[in-house]
Nucleic acid binder design. Structure first.
Lengths: 214, 214, 214, 214
DNA sequence: AATGAATGAGTTTTCATTCAT
DNA sequence: GATGAATGAAAACTCATTCAT
């Protein structure tokens, strides 16, 4: 009986703790479809199965909710990527491939892809959030990337020119895939696996034919 | 008197013809900063130096203005790219380089970069416009790209694997650059020329060191 | 054990009995600063050191609380004034002076001065309360005053014209002082003793110079 | 026809100029009955015969409207009083009587009496406005009063003690009358003329019987 | 054609009140 | 009795759109 009691209490407090997460999930869906200004908190509430006023028990304002959604979603994903960069022992190619796989699985294929979409669409109206995203997300991803490339150049796997490449360019196919799925998926569904293959093949070998001597 | 009249009409009608373009330019700036829902027609009017009601002499609604802005801006740019694809005689590499240069000069460096930004941010609320963009912009750009790649593969310049590549991936660095300038330029300005170099080097050679035999 | 129990019960019920008074004190402070509509029960609760819902254990509604605050505060003070009117034996001047002293000490100098302020500010929205206040407070104060004046006129101390005076006018400096302290105290603090002196001097002698024969 | 035209234009621009005044009149009535927080702009608009949004063409916010109402109403009235103080040649008694008459006619008998009511009820939430009222209204009225009293004392009409009186006390019957009419008029209508008589008699002669030698 | 005052539907936010714990 | 999370009605304020001038 004590066990049952404990279990109930746990389930109760778990629900309580999940409320903000439920709201943020609902909010992400609405924001990603309608943008910040186009989203009605009424709809967020309905989607979360609560009523309007309840949102204000957990978030100070619509702006606040928006910022929390972005921060809450992107950070865990980043930590996972960094863990891979640190832990794996292998060739630079393997690490890079593994990281790209994670990116396509976690960012492009889940609703986390809405986060970069929202930063693009709303970043200008949330300069504080854009600064956070630049500092805590972009900068960290670029650092990650630089680390792998340096390792590859050091052991002779990668061309030394890559040290001067802009990291945005290297990751850009993933961004394109995420944006495509957000906007044009209905007209032409994207095959994520095939896209990842393109990304890796392009990134590793480039267009030019080695045998070509014309 | 007829002459005078004609002259007046000409000067007058010239102003008349420019009015919609002035409005659309003002609208693009507002939409690109504030998004569709976040933009006030009042501000568009002020920026265009006219008054609120005048917009409705040329556009039926805010939605209509938004769609016209997107259509009006992106098409001329596409036609220019297609002309290059058709006219230039040279190696596939040269044509591709030249097209990328145009893209970075016309799309990334001017306010035309706001068009893809707006499609990403607002596409979901304008399915009709998204369908237009997919059909008239994306599809045509991909066709353009496929044509150059086929030419390069045919003459041995390019690796045959490139025929299976997703065109989005090949162009994605340009999208990244355009989005960067839209959102993060203030935190870390992008050197367009260096970025183009990265794009071309990455696209042509890839990461791997051809001498590497490890 | 019975003793312990009783003691506990006593202490407990004492707390219980004080609860409504604590709430009303907190409410008076909030109402007096923010008015009825501008006061949040949340703030009343916080000030009383309890939580929102608890107020509803003692008061049916915000309106009810407001009315109780006014009734609860003003009646004991009135009873005290009436006691003085009945008990004191002396000249009419002395009785009147003594009553005014009480008014300035009890009404103007304590937070009881917020009661007339609230009647002025909110009386229109509480017609039932205004009627109570008129009947149970104003009328009784005027009766009190009339009684002293009649005594003074009867024994020749006061001018007979005073029998026709409006009682509001005689007491009005006290109201002014109470309102001043409520609104303008921060800009120009009121010296209550000096004000009482003015009130009594004005009330007794008036402006005119007896010696003047111009 | 030109005349008609001009007349129309005049009537048109007159209406335009009156819009803010119409709104302020409607607002004063609502504010005076319901207080600041208790007033709905919807009701102000309805009373002014316009719609909600129109208020915002002339006033930035509800707060702004409230402050403008107070400022707009009280200043002309003050100027009138000051003019009397300066222009009239006569005994101090006559000037004072004349000023009091104006106060009862203009302040107590018209809806201008709502202004002091609102300052009492809402002054705490509008510290800026309270400071304005203290500085521009109260201070000027007290100066006015002091000037008359000094004149009366100088020529021997008034008792020199009056120089030390608090001006609030001298004017307080007028405040009481204004407040009475605002709150208790429905239970016991106030005879303004009789009240003014009381005020003047009290102010001039006081209570005490000069013949009394007890 | 151009204006900008007016409209009123729509959205965010607040807060009295309830009720399960 | 006490709590405080949840509710949803109500109100300030905005802004696309209209229309008399």
């Amino acid at each position: 009986m004590a066990g049952t009691n404990t279990s109930q209490e746990h389930s109760y407090s778990r629900r309580k703790d999940e409320r903000p997460a439920e709201i943020m999930n609902a909010a992400l869906e609405e924001f990603s479809t309608n943008g910040f200004a186009g989203t009605r908190l009424q709809d967020v509430a309905r989607r979360a199965g609560i009523c309007k006023g309840t949102i204000y028990l957990y978030f100070r304002s619509k702006e606040d909710l928006f910022e929390e959604v972005v921060r809450d979603r992107i950070l865990p994903y980043l930590e996972q990527l960094e863990a891979i960069g640190e832990n794996v022992e292998g060739s630079a190619r393997d690490i890079l491939r593994q990281q790209l796989k994670i990116i396509y699985q976690q960012l492009v294929s889940t609703d986390t892809r809405y986060i970069p979409k929202l930063m693009i669409g709303e970043g200008n109206r949330f300069p504080h959030l854009a600064e956070f995203y630049f500092r805590e997300v972009i900068t960290r991803m670029h650092k990650l990337l630089r680390s792998v490339i340096e390792r590859g150049v050091a052991n002779g796997e990668f061309r030394p020119e890559a040290l001067r490449w802009k990291p945005q360019a290297i990751l850009s196919p993933a961004l394109s895939a995420a944006m495509w799925r957000t906007v044009f998926e209905q007209f032409d569904p994207l095959d994520i696996d095939a896209f990842l293959d393109t990304h890796i093949d392009l990134l590793m070998h480039g267009l030019l034919n080695r045998e070509y001597t014309g």
